[in-house]
Amino acid sequence: MSYAKVITIAVLIVLLAACGRNAAKPDESATEAVPTDTDSTRGAAGTSSPSGTALTEEERARQLLAQLTIYFDYDSSEIRSDFNDMLRAHARQLAQNPNMRVRLEGHADERGSREYNIALGERRAQAVRQVLQLQGASSTQLSTVSYGEERPVELGHDDTSWAKNRRVELVYAN
């Protein structure tokens, strides 16, 4: 089986699981999903019970579309389930607006060697690309670039900074 097929199937399984869980429970939090480095918090986002009035579908979509960064675990390009809703919203937006273009910028934390990190950043961007395409975005709308560890958002040399630097950014071109 090809690697692409493995990824595709894995992504589908994750998405199906996430659909069943999240469909009726909109996430209230307007903040971006917090990067995590541990398994214990994975998948927690989106399941917290709403404590205020429920958001309209439109408000919810707007919140999800405002999220432009997907975070990753160390040396991993696996998309965590807490980013499923956000990616689905972006994919839908792209499907509905065929002229829209988005650049997927992959990044790694500073640990290890720079060129391997370039490859890792590209793999992360490709993983995001696959998900967006599976959910309706067209390949012509998507491009990837990897900056590896060259463009950190956080300059610290600790776990907190690294978690924020292992990311893919969605950059919409106007």
Partner: peptide, 28 residues
Amino acid sequence: RSGVNSAPAWAPDGQKLAVALSEADGNV
């Protein structure tokens, strides 16, 4: 090329470079 163009290394003959590209399928 689109995607990764990285890690150039000169061949001993000075004519060629070994490089890491993601050209074909996004894999480096």
